[in-house]
Simulated assay, not measured.
Amino acid sequence: MVTRKVSVPAAVQLEGVHCVFGTGERAVRAVDGVDLAIAPGEFFTLLGPSGSGKTTVLRMIGGFTLPSAGRLLIGGEDVTLRPPYARPVNTVFQDYALFPHMSIADNVAYGLMVRGVGKAARRRQANDMLALVQLDGVGERRPAQLSGGQRQRVALARALINRPQLLLLDEPLGALDLKLREQMQSELKALQRQLGITFVFVTHDQHEALSMSDRIGVFHRGRLEQVGTPQVIYDRPATRFVARFVGAANVLDDDAARRLTGHVSVMLRPERIRLGGAAGARAGGTVSEVQYFGAFTRVRVNAAGVGLQADLPPGAAVPEVGATVHLHWDASAVHALSDEPAAAATAAAVAAPAPLGAAA
């Protein structure tokens, strides 16, 4: 028996989208010709530094900002000019935007109240949603009586209660401390898998993006530099910017790259470099700095006229500053880089994968 692939519209499709703020000499091109397709049920992250265009793209998907050119489709329908309330989308903002005068249950049920759902049904669904985000028994409290992590869960419950096709998350974990943020990353990913709703998540935190996403779109100066799985983005960055922005990297150009690797421009991750004897070493140099990070120790070495960093695993012998060391790496650790976003990266952005869990 042969199973045919079923063609399903992308959850989100951006076609040649531009966004320009202001006019004339004061004009700012916030988004510069983005083409992107996000699959139904996908956890897709828009990653980039401040001012890269990622939040503007999120706001255009939500309808809070209109594109200057291009089309935006949700579930195959053109929603380019529709207002936010006419889109099957809900948004979780960084500040949570909870109503301080309302109980937690009423905050969660607010969307149902606007739709005219009866009080008893609203309360029942709100309690079910609070249970889903592990907040049983707090429905009568006010937002000020909850911790930051709890308020974040309330904002999620309020956004999800109307079962939107698409949930937009604008750096919702940014205000949390490190331990709570890591806990919420795991919970958020599990919740998305349980509900099967498409999540579009904005962050500037590379570790957050790598740990949570099905795919990542890396933004820089209003453009998509690369789209791919976390493994592809980390191991095979398309450009110098992606290599430097996502994780620690030794990026070598021109003469230094040719001397050490034989390529014009390359990336070499610090964890792929080992310290060893002189025999077979790729380079040698003097230790200029040693940093302890717990899970690894980073050693910076002045070698062949350039600075290289190597990450040593726990238990490895750590040289002192000023010591002479020899660096080793496998040929497979060297990744060649491009000056511009690769054509393959652009193609990956436009062609969304099949819906997660769909039969091939």
Score class of each variant (00 low, 15 high):
Ala37Ile: 11
Gln291His: 05
Ser50Thr: 14
Leu195Ser: 05
Asn302His: 09
Gln183Ser: 08
Gln13Trp: 03
Ala295Trp: 01
Glu208Asp: 05
Ala238Trp: 09
Ala344Val: 11
Met113Thr: 14
Leu252Ala: 03
Glu271Phe: 07
Phe241Met: 09
Ala109Cys: 09
Leu135His: 00
Val108Arg: 03
Gly116Pro: 10
Lys5Trp: 11
Gly285Glu: 01
Val325Asp: 05
Ala348Met: 08
Thr346Leu: 13
His326Trp: 09
Glu340Gln: 15
Leu14Thr: 07
Val17Ala: 13
Leu168Pro: 01
Tyr292Ala: 00
Ala248Val: 11
Arg158Val: 08
Arg298Ser: 01
Val79Ile: 12
Ala345Tyr: 08
Val227Leu: 10
Gly22Ala: 09
Glu340Phe: 12
Ala336Leu: 13
Ala256Trp: 02
Val17Asn: 11
Val287Ala: 01
Leu195His: 04
Leu58Thr: 09
Lys189Trp: 04
Gly137Leu: 00
Asn127Ser: 14
Asp311Phe: 05
Ser186Trp: 09
Asp255Lys: 12
Phe199Ala: 11
Gly284Asp: 06
Lys179Phe: 07
Val299Asp: 03
Lys189His: 03
Pro230Gln: 06
Val242Met: 10
Ser103Arg: 13
Ala27Val: 12
Asp339Thr: 11
Val138Glu: 04
Ile61Trp: 09
Ala120Glu: 14
Leu112Trp: 02
Ile161Gly: 02
Arg26Leu: 15
Val133Asp: 03
Asp235Gln: 14
Val246His: 07
Glu15Phe: 04
Gln185Leu: 10
Ala159Leu: 04
Leu46Asn: 10
Phe199Leu: 11
Gln94Tyr: 06
Ala317Arg: 08
Arg59Asn: 15
Leu72Gln: 00
Thr45Arg: 06
Thr55Gly: 11
Gln13His: 13
Arg215Leu: 11
Gly305Phe: 04
